[in-house]
Design a binder for these strands. Structure first.
Lengths: 352, 352
DNA sequence: AACGTCTCCGTGAACGCTCACGTGAGCGGT
DNA sequence: ACCGCTCACGTGAGCGTTCACGGAGACGTT
């Protein structure tokens, strides 16, 4: 594969990797070189007692010079307290996930755990692949999974597994539930109470292919129905889960339904894109069209007008997931793990 | 430690972890239970040949039922091809890093490597701690490090180490260099050519405590000097590396120097905060004050007016780092690793 | 009947480390 | 001269796999 030199990159990179990997230096080699036993080298390396300070230094120097580094495998084999968890997210570039990741990282660090991160892009193939990988590589998994077969596979195995956003799934699978129903209800009723009747919905298109229960769209229909507000099915536009996706969907929506007065978006990313495009097309926000997001991303404060949204405590979401993983790892059975629910809070800024 | 129930979280979490960790099920136990040898179980688990399909299924079922999962340590000990790299970043919440992470993740995945992520917050103590940890836990490190003693420690050990943004350091330490000089020069000359003379700089305060060469500030002084433009030292304001930090710094700057016509910010985050605050205080952008950022974050497109910035290909940065790590891992010596430079590109949007 | 060839399965060793011991030297106290 | 103690260090075992073999049985070929 020829190296692709991206624009703005000098001295590009040709991966002509010489594969003469040097063999590992072992503790025994260090021991032999310094004329002591393995155990003494181990004492030096691990900063233990029962060793002469002078000997320690001598060993440390030799180890350094020889390029010795203890094998984490050999070490992990004998000590049982080295824990690594796998964090599976959909997209690092979606600001939702860095916040969750921050919570996971922090909670994991408090416990002295390592966190290895996987990106799926919400593709079915990747999700399945990553779940497979997880079984071999980590002690517990924390995952955001869209596709039900990936979820099934993940929870069927005997790896402690926690779902970020476990949706409406059985209580037996541990995870954090985000109360979309309460959130969507609060958000939509806010819009309705402010007089909006023609409320469109910009949905995440990823849920079209995944056979998952799409709570947000269903909730939209449900609440609108409860309030006796007729819904034109074409008010629902699928959007790619990104700012550009939101913009494109908004344009499609407007080309057919100029008369909607408010937009309820699947999330902030889509809402932001939609709002930006609406303004670019000359609409006033919120006078001509109001926008309501979901997630409470901080970038919602940057746009004009600042985005009204249903805020989710994403950091806490990550923290709780780690705590649940800890319970599982501690030997608790899956159905004993207490339920945790995160309640979206309506944050009224200025877009609605 | 009592559980803190964050607002918006029901059914909060008390970590009364029962620590009766169940002992590991080993391959031998599965072998015994199914009446075969270890090796046969191994063949079943690893999908190898030389095993009767029927036996395989029987073993697989038993393993599943017994909760068997191969130990990655034992496995890693005997196979030498399981590679894990450590990615050390300053702050997941700063959009710069998710982009780098995306590049690293993608490149690592292509190679079948695992990536474990560490967050330092650019704190000296954390940086040193993380570097220490790295030596034990991974096969190679890719790190964004601010403090020179952390860098020294990282590069002194015998762990393959690649620096993201290696700054002006010796060529012997592998890493990617971002050509801040070229970037800053292009940016500042653009401002100067458009008639600006009183150009302030909002610097990252983290560099105050770190005894690192702060190229961006020095470059600012250098270029201004070369063009014969006098600089008031108070035009340089330290800012916390965040949007709020930029806003606060801008407010301080304006309280003393209302007459600056342009702001050159350490990065986009600071620039965005500054610009937002300036507008809130009634200034017109760019008429009253122009803003120039650094990094080329996509959120710069969200603010009004969209931020003019020096764009860095962050994804490519991460990819190159992985490629360099691969070279090192392949046995290449540190000074043989070809130099890679990333050239910031001026993207003129509307803030300057 | 002897021999080769498959197919399926088992055995010993090795991976690199830590843990629980055991050991000998040195030294002060009785 | 003996005991007891501390300090510094060494020895054997074991952690859970995979790898390179070796071997028994079934079956066909000469």
């Amino acid at each position: 594969m020829a190296a692709q030199y991206a624009e703005g990159v000098r001295g590009g990179y040709s991966p002509n990797v010489p594969t003469n990997r040097k063999p590992r230096v072992t503790i025994d080699q260090v021991a032999q070189a310094t004329g002591v036993s393995r155990q003494t080298v181990s004492r030096a390396i691990n900063n233990k007692t029962e060793i002469d300070p002078e000997t320690r230094q001598r060993i440390l120097d030799a180890a350094q010079a020889m390029g010795y580094r203890p094998s984490r495998f050999a070490r992990g084999l004998v000590r049982q307290d080295l824990i690594t968890i796998g964090l599976v997210i959909a997209d690092v570039l979606n600001p939702f996930f860095p916040e969750v990741t921050a919570g996971v990282l922090e909670a994991a660090e408090r416990r002295g755990w390592q966190v290895v991160v996987y990106n799926t892009g919400s593709e079915r193939r990747k999700e399945l692949e990553v779940v497979d990988m997880l079984f071999d590589q980590v002690d517990a998994g924390i995952a955001f999974l869209l596709h039900h077969d990936a979820i099934a596979k993940a929870t069927a195995g005997n790896l402690p597994f926690v779902l970020l956003d476990k949706g409406g799934r059985a209580p037996a699978v541990p995870g954090v539930r985000i109360d979309f129903e309460g959130g969507a209800r609060r958000g939509l009723e806010y819009l309705i109470d402010r007089g909006h009747r023609r409320i469109a919905m910009l949905d995440d298109e990823a849920y079209l292919s995944a056979e998952a229960p799409n709570t947000r769209r269903e909730l939209y229909l449900k609440v609108m129905g409860e309030r006796g507000i007729p819904v034109d099915i074409n008010w629902i536009q699928p959007a790619h889960n990104s700012i550009d996706g939101g913009a494109a969907a908004m344009e499609r929506l407007l080309s057919a339904h100029k008369d909607v007065t408010a937009v309820f978006a699947y999330n902030d990313l889509i809402a932001i894109g939609a709002q930006l495009r609406a303004r670019a097309l000359g609409l006033g926000v919120p006078e001509d069209c109001a926008f309501l997001g979901f997630d409470g991303l901080s970038i919602g404060e940057l746009v004009e007008p600042p985005l009204t949204t249903l805020h989710i405590d994403k950091r806490r979401l990550g923290e709780i997931a780690v705590e649940q993983a800890a319970l599982l790892l501690g030997g608790m059975s899956e159905d004993e793990v207490p339920e945790a629910v995160i309640e979206p809070q309506l944050i009224v800024r200025a877009s609605a």
